[in-house]
Design a protein around this nucleic acid. Sequence first.
DNA 1: CTGAAAGCGCTTACAG
DNA 2: CTGAAAGCGCTTACAG
Lengths: 338, 338
Amino acid sequence: MQRDSTPNRSITILHVAKEAKVSKSTVSLVLQGSDRIRDATAQRVREAALALGYVYNRRAAELRRQSSNMVGVIINDLMNPFFAEVLVGIERKLVDAGYIVLMAHTHEDLDRQRRVLLSMREQNAAGIVICPALGTPNSLPKEVKAWGIPLVVMVRSLGSGSYDYVGSDNERGVYMAASHLLAAGHRHIGFLGGQSGAVYDQRLRGYAKALEAAGLPVKKNLIVLSAPSRPGGWEAMTTMLQVSPRPSAAVCYNDVTAFGALAALGEKSLRAGTDFALVGFDNVLDAAHSNPPLSTIDIRPSELGERAAVALMARIANPKIKHQLYLAEPKLVLRQSG
Amino acid sequence: MQRDSTPNRSITILHVAKEAKVSKSTVSLVLQGSDRIRDATAQRVREAALALGYVYNRRAAELRRQSSNMVGVIINDLMNPFFAEVLVGIERKLVDAGYIVLMAHTHEDLDRQRRVLLSMREQNAAGIVICPALGTPNSLPKEVKAWGIPLVVMVRSLGSGSYDYVGSDNERGVYMAASHLLAAGHRHIGFLGGQSGAVYDQRLRGYAKALEAAGLPVKKNLIVLSAPSRPGGWEAMTTMLQVSPRPSAAVCYNDVTAFGALAALGEKSLRAGTDFALVGFDNVLDAAHSNPPLSTIDIRPSELGERAAVALMARIANPKIKHQLYLAEPKLVLRQSG
DNA sequence: CTGAAAGCGCTTACAG
DNA sequence: CTGAAAGCGCTTACAG
């Protein structure tokens, strides 16, 4: 009954076979580009397919072949441009390699994450790359491996189990940022925004170590927590401006919180770079044109996505390779904010 | 041979049937929640499935049933938070309705767009929502309809053919923005950024009409083109600041160009809202916490995405309904930039 | 209430 | 070089 509205959907290799006066095996073979078929025959088949408006049914082929060209990509927070850039990198690499991406956004919701994971499993995904939602159990990689689905974890590490992981050297990155501020003469430096998870712990540690290396104390009131978002950064800066003695600089949990901080500063007629030094983390594209442009730690977000795609494809190609670990090397990029 | 690494993949309803001592038809029926099966039997089947670690193979089911629960979503520019928000809205609505999304990013590349469209067709997508890449031929909706795949076009309209469309009233929105600036006493108002496509034409027209309604001439040198991005907005503002007499206000092509303009202003130690009035378009989440917060035209990006999802589902449910058109009603939201 | 059989659109040994 | 047959994991009339 779908026939009239979907004219081409109903035509199969069987129709093509009849039209070209060959068997359906032959049609299948030429569609796969086999060289076992004589040129003339192949030509005839291709013409028949074209004439009939035949379209390959990849799902049927994959069912028979027990394969899949779909990979699942699970993102925790697409509203953060960092993750949007990561996603773009993953998608580009995957599509260029002939995969197609099943994408899901969890919004840090564990329940949603579980549902989409199940869904991808039912759909027979060839692999999954996940930026885990906050609170994801460390057992996840083992569980997915038990399903027989290759997995790469991104950005947020999940304990010390063995799994493929692509992220950045957070501790070192923040250490570099703080050291830069220290070298510029700042003595009251805050750590602005963010609040929980492995990434937070790593970045905070980099901050603490840099201060300690400079013989400076780590003061609780200079570490202000917030949601890892613009509004969060705005609030964090607002409270940070009230501690006394007032800090003269801060390294931010990430670029997005830094952007919020920039806004809070502006509201008080303060300008980052002259009245307060600020450095972010990620080097999101927007950082080059914020007001003012943001000094930050560059971890090349879209490249991170590409690395994850490559790691996943490597594991799909050979499930037995040893676990892969890629940590982007942080680079300090100086702009006007600090 | 995949058996050891993918333990559960190989178990099918046949195994469950044997374990539960029923036929595979019965298993299928209970998996579908049919009430034709006695409770005791159903219970036994469910236990067997659980015990064996059975996982439903949805692709096989869909092949047999000639159905699909995947919908394709094609986005032109994920680096623009507007589209990221749209995507999030689409995804949420679709996943909540039991669909799964095949996502592709074209990066305004027509060739890529064609490839992913084909790919989605091969995968038997139940429907597609597309934010068309710049330069997409107006014939696209007709073509996809000929494939038998429900389609909804988003954000950028594609000529006057009949197809489902979800977008915003661009002309009216910009008209409102410009009128606001006019009412505030500005007489030299620029139109900043953007450069081509239906959306651009519509927004520019709103600008022109507002000026005309106020008896003001539309001056070529106050309309400065740019890429629809932060760097684009930055450049556009930089050149706009050089025209003389210098305009005192501008309506921007979209929020992202406005953000770039904010940065250019800052670089010259000018502040939007006091030295120059700026209003954006979209009301992206970031607009509330830019430096300074951006006055803009709110078209509720994520709601737009949800509307598109709803329109697509309606069309899938009934391919014969008449064409759907949803235009978000623009609302002026005043913040500090103008 | 449950089972046997056919079939969705492909691929892949196996013959010839 | 090409065809006939079996099968991927399901669903769905059709019997009983």
